[in-house]
Nucleic acid binder design. Sequence first.
DNA 1: CTGTTAGCGCTTTCAT
DNA 2: ATGAAAGCGCTAACAG
Lengths: 339, 339
Amino acid sequence: MTPTIADVAREAGVTKGTVSHVYSGHRPISTQTKARVHAAAEKLGWVPNSNARALAGHRTNAIGLVLHRDPSALVVDTFFPNFISGMQSVLAEQQIMLIMQVVGDRAAEEQAYRSMAHGRADGVVLLDMHLRDWRIGFLQKLKLPAVLMDMPQDQLGFTTVRLNSAQPMEQLIDYLQERGHTRIAHVSGPLTYVHAYERAKAYVHRVGGSALLREGDFTAGNGRHLTAQLLSMPDRPTAIIYSNNVMAIAGQAYAQEHGLVVPDDLALAGFEDNEICAHLNPPLTSIDTDPIGRGRLVAKQLIRTIAGIPTESVASRDATIKFRESTAGQAPSVVREVH
Amino acid sequence: MTPTIADVAREAGVTKGTVSHVYSGHRPISTQTKARVHAAAEKLGWVPNSNARALAGHRTNAIGLVLHRDPSALVVDTFFPNFISGMQSVLAEQQIMLIMQVVGDRAAEEQAYRSMAHGRADGVVLLDMHLRDWRIGFLQKLKLPAVLMDMPQDQLGFTTVRLNSAQPMEQLIDYLQERGHTRIAHVSGPLTYVHAYERAKAYVHRVGGSALLREGDFTAGNGRHLTAQLLSMPDRPTAIIYSNNVMAIAGQAYAQEHGLVVPDDLALAGFEDNEICAHLNPPLTSIDTDPIGRGRLVAKQLIRTIAGIPTESVASRDATIKFRESTAGQAPSVVREVH
DNA sequence: CTGTTAGCGCTTTCAT
DNA sequence: ATGAAAGCGCTAACAG
């Protein structure tokens, strides 16, 4: 059998309690015993059983992430892998596991959170918040600690790690306007998502009366479709800002197929930078929202929350715009029509 | 406090053992008691504590996935989210959780597997196999059930879910050769990875003496770099097959920047289809390796393995090539030089 | 600074 | 078909 704490204790000539405390640091242990215990554990190849630990200590040392994989979209860009990698870099230090569950419907999602609340996880992080999100009340009932991503205001005591998405949107619009663009369109994500909504709101606010907003769904096909719509308008936009890079890439391809030169005839930019953006023809201007850094912040925040440390919502590092060729140069003096 | 099995037992007027068996089905229970137990559980809102369950029953109902995130690449394409989504669609049915851990180095990786073996997970799936992979011996020592992805042959009793990557490679080469291409290059992934190696092997095998192989690292920057190298050769290739779409996309951009028309001057194709490929200019031919289906297969295989059902390795559905414009038409009669 | 001991919530023999 | 009771491996009082 695999060794237990009792084996280690016997080997080290101490009691189980002492071994336990050596590892938890919950009370001072003499350097000598500590060394003996470590040696014994090493020798026997002992690893604490996490279930026993959770059962006795009411701590699972795991945090949960439930993904509602809706229209097979949402996981298309590189936000997600980067984000979890950021979280892990913090979690790993503290030996905390990430438990992930992808669910298809509301019932499964509730079930997932219930099971996490009942001994699977000490807390969860909530992604892709909606304006009025049922999960908030649900988790409150479950008394499951949580940290939200990008919720504009705190909800029922849950804190959030918040990205200022108005700032890059405004900066980008200013940049384009300085170059003579007056018809700047925005292809958003689904506006029920807070992140998409906030970007769209910032957009409308900044461009004012000339707002040209199309609600997209973050997929390439849809990005293409909406780009086609926008470009066939009588007074078509000379610049389009997309809420993610997948739609932007598809938009750029559409424009080029239809004879437009980017950026001379049309300027393009998207949210969520990734390596591919820099390697397109032309390279695509995009907004780096620092998913890794935000993952780290969320993990830290959740750990603090679980520990019961009073915590306030925090702002993540401001997004930075990677200006590339797709927005270089001036707005076209002659707006070429698209066929 | 949250209700325990004892509360349910009391409420239903039975013993804990009976409640347990009602849920496990490990022994016959009269319809009446069964109903009473269910009613009691429902009334109290009882959810079995998974830690207690794992501790007593030696089953965690969780499976693990450890990702060694090496060069910040490897998670760039869409294989991964699709793959786990496929796994989850099987796991969810059986109430099995996926435990994921991203690690940075070998020590952390070993630690992760140890902790999984010691009560965190009933088994693991291994991705990104190397030709001689230390994990195999390691897991064997831990006695941790596992299923491998795409290992050419079974290892120490571990079975694998295997994709035939020679088939699409050969089909693609044939397709290109039929269109007159005689200089077909391949930009592979790191050849220490079995999947990259197998593709490269199939490539070399099929093109024979005219093989023009460059070992890449799956990143866009590197894809660009190697494309540049290949295109500056005196007798440059007229077609390039990349081992993932990220490198292919970067390659296409490079070629276009340097005045080549795709596919007239250069044909391009990549492994791992995703939505973006279809929405580039021109749309990129790519190989759909069905990550979702493979995720499902691996999950099923692992569940069987954990249950102790004798299991053989299985082949996943053959990859399908999505032929798009980037490989349409004939090989150029005049090979334009690149500057 | 260290030992002792009573559980954590469930599964699983062994009885009946 | 059900009950009783002995743990699973660990933590956290409570002693000293």
